[in-house]
Design a protein around this nucleic acid. Structure first.
Lengths: 155, 155
DNA sequence: TCTTGACTTAAACTTCACTTTAAGTTGTAT
DNA sequence: ATACAACTTAAAGTGAAGTTTAAGTCAAGA
């Protein structure tokens, strides 16, 4: 069973132009063509597109995804490289998760800040508030901001 | 105590050109200038830059961060809007976290796939492997892929 | 005072990931 | 056979988030 690019695009909920772009960039080396040059996607191709989607969601740039696809076509000799890329990307996802958790705490602190400000009718309440009033979970945040020695994470 | 743009950039671990760009885009309405036109950052400005960093890490586009900065300058009347934006961004972070968890599972499945392939010396082992051999945690993934009725998430 | 390094702006350039456009072809339905 | 929607390509355009360049200004030390 074959699908046209439009059908496949609908299946994947992306624009056909996106699939053409990926193909042009060498990310879809598996798609076959009809004698007239029309792309014919197979059910089997879905597996590769899902792989692509997975790597993309993991934050991998298209160039690296292309490497992965190239290695895949080169056969079993490149299993090691593919595994390395996967491990690297796993670590990247773990880092992103940690980043998001930090961000959520900051966001929650700011929400608390504006919720109390809203209740008081003015942001000025925070000028006359001491550490005691700040919920425990936000304390480490404040301390971290005190010690500006780091310089590791950008902004 | 004042800092030049170069000093502040170093503190925040970003390029000075980035801060100039943010300023040009109206994201730093709080920076003062010397009589000669040179930006003079205050310790107090760090609070705003941290806010900016928080929103940016939460995935908020610079345009929306600008809205937030604009509202901040407009005073207490805009506390509601700011809170709404924070709530919205909190939800966005929660969504991103869920997304990353799904991605991690997919990545772990693929890692398992290539680890077993590496052990066997070929990807072909997976052609002759039945569901029994697939670790439990990856089953729901396989089933999800079977039912392609969704069409919700792009790629 | 002069040099020098860090600052200033405006404008052009870059990268990424697409999207749109224009001109032409394919394949199906009547 | 013809119409017509959906396909094809190459090339140009888009938007986000900066970076680089060019030409000039500021401020601190010798």
């Amino acid at each position: 069973m074959f699908y046209t690019i439009g059908e496949m695009a609908q299946k994947l909920n992306v624009a056909p132009s996106t699939l053409r772009y990926y193909d042009k960039e060498g990310l879809l080396p598996f798609v076959e063509r009809s004698s007239g040059g029309i792309r014919m996607f197979k059910d089997e191709d879905l597996e590769w597109l899902r792989m692509l989607g997975c790597l993309k969601k993991a934050g991998m740039p298209l160039k690296e995804i292309k490497s992965f696809m190239d290695w895949s076509r080169q056969g079993d000799a490149t299993i090691g490289q593919r595994l390395d890329l996967l491990e690297k990307q796993r670590q990247s996802v773990l880092d992103q998760q940690k980043q998001l958790e930090d961000t959520l705490l900051m966001l929650d602190y700011k929400r608390w800040y504006y919720q109390t400000a809203q209740a008081a009718g003015t942001c000025a309440v925070h000028d006359t508030m001491d550490l005691e009033q700040v919920p425990d979970r936000f304390r480490p945040l404040k301390e971290e901001w005190q010690a500006e020695e780091d310089g590791k994470e950008p902004l």
